[in-house]
């Protein structure tokens, strides 16, 4: 059994369901623990500002982890991802309030390959800014 989306049913331009991912300071603390990345720019406002950031920022790898969920939720099989790459263009700034920030991710099929895979191009936005560039995943479909 493989992905639930069939290669035959997908065309270049097919849009994936858009998703929004909230991120608060608590999200970042939790991600720090789970990933082992304890860089203080992701939880210590004083430190973040000292190194020239506007505030605490999300781990780039957290944003990368959220963005691929648009693909893996679509296919239903996270193991069907063949490759995945991003450029970290802008930080996701996470204020110290109950709302935090929102990462909005959309994706569409950019290339349909003959080997049963497609390339999905992802767009990740936060606070009106594009936070990932060159965000692309190749995924095997059923």
């Amino acid at each position: 059994m493989a992905a639930k989306i069939s290669h035959a049913d997908v065309e270049v331009g097919t849009e994936l369901p858009t998703q929004s991912f909230p991120v608060t300071r608590a999200t970042l603390v939790r991600y720090a623990g789970a990933s082992g990345d304890f860089n203080p720019i992701h939880w210590n406002e004083r430190f973040a500002k000292e190194v020239g950031l506007p505030d605490v920022i999300a781990h780039g790898m957290f944003t990368m982890a959220e963005a691929i969920r648009v693909v893996t939720d679509w296919t239903g099989d996270p193991g069907a991802v063949v490759d995945y790459g991003v450029r970290f263009t802008k930080p996701v700034v996470v204020p110290d309030d109950d709302t935090g920030a929102l990462i909005e991710v959309s994706g569409k099929v950019a290339v349909k390959n003959d080997d049963g895979t497609v390339r999905v191009d992802l767009t990740a936005m936060s606070d009106g800014k594009k936070v990932l560039g060159m965000s692309r995943a190749t995924v095997r479909l059923a």
Binding site: M1, R69, D77
Partner: peptide, 20 residues
């Protein structure tokens, strides 16, 4: 859990086996 992903293939062995 830290990335908020509830896909059972990460937590349920039977769900993972169903995908091979």
């Amino acid at each position: 859990q830290a990335v908020g992903d509830t896909s059972p293939v990460y937590t349920d062995v039977e769900a993972a086996k169903a995908l091979g």
